[in-house]
């Protein structure tokens, strides 16, 4: 058991995959930015390499970078993988950026089966299509739900199933934007 620091992990990955970049968040949180096409290869390397041995997928999530105050402004969906090695007890964050319009990322469920559920959730809430996922269905919202709610440009529905979302006469100041109607 030998826990590696982020720099050592980054060096090991970059030696094999030169296209992988080190990305530093505004507060110094380090992550590896992986090109979309090579995420499965990188994931396989991270999991099987004896020095790294990332056997656990701790979290898989995403966030919409629209409206995030960065220079230059970004407009894509950033998928975040939090990997943890129970063998060596070290952690690393991977990031994959997918364009908003053609939002598809290869699935890593072949490496960690835990990704099966995480990816369904990200598909449901962000609309990231994970190519190769065996059953990419909505998980949280009903099957006939429109849109992907956690995107920043999402409009709240005014009605669902013929039932108004708000109570009669209910009105909120500065409520989230809703589609279809004055609500």
């Amino acid at each position: 058991m030998k826990a590696l620091a982020f720099d050592a992990i980054a060096t090991a990955v970059q030696a094999r995959f030169p296209a992988v970049l080190v990305q530093k968040a505004d507060n110094g949180q380090m992550a590896l930015r992986v090109p979309k096409a090579s995420i499965v290869d990188v994931a396989h390397f991270l999991r099987t390499d004896a020095q790294l041995a990332f056997d656990g997928l701790s979290d898989l999530t995403a966030f919409d970078t629209l409206k995030y105050p960065s220079t230059p402004p970004q407009d894509d969906i950033c998928v975040v993988y939090v990997l943890f090695s129970y063998t060596h007890r070290h952690k690393v964050l991977l990031k994959v950026h997918a364009e908003r319009a053609a939002c598809d990322v290869p699935t890593v469920s072949g490496e960690w089966p835990a990704a099966l559920y995480f990816e369904r959730e990200v598909w449901d809430l962000f609309g990231v299509r994970f190519v190769g996922h065996p059953s990419l269905r909505r998980i949280m919202t009903p099957d006939d739900w429109e849109g992907h709610p956690l995107r920043k440009d999402y409009l709240y529905p005014a009605t669902y199933n013929g039932v108004a979302h708000l109570r009669d006469g209910q009105h909120f100041e500065a409520a989230p934007p809703r589609s279809g109607g004055p609500l």
Binding site: A25, D26, N27, P69, V82, K91, L93
Partner: peptide
């Protein structure tokens, strides 16, 4: 400040990890 973090703690049903992104 702007930035992001991933922190986990142990809840009775296992690790509860928060991934927070702040835009300032």
């Amino acid at each position: 400040g702007k930035g992001e973090i991933h922190v986990r703690t142990e809840a009775p049903r296992g690790e509860m990890g928060y991934f927070l992104v702040s835009d300032g």
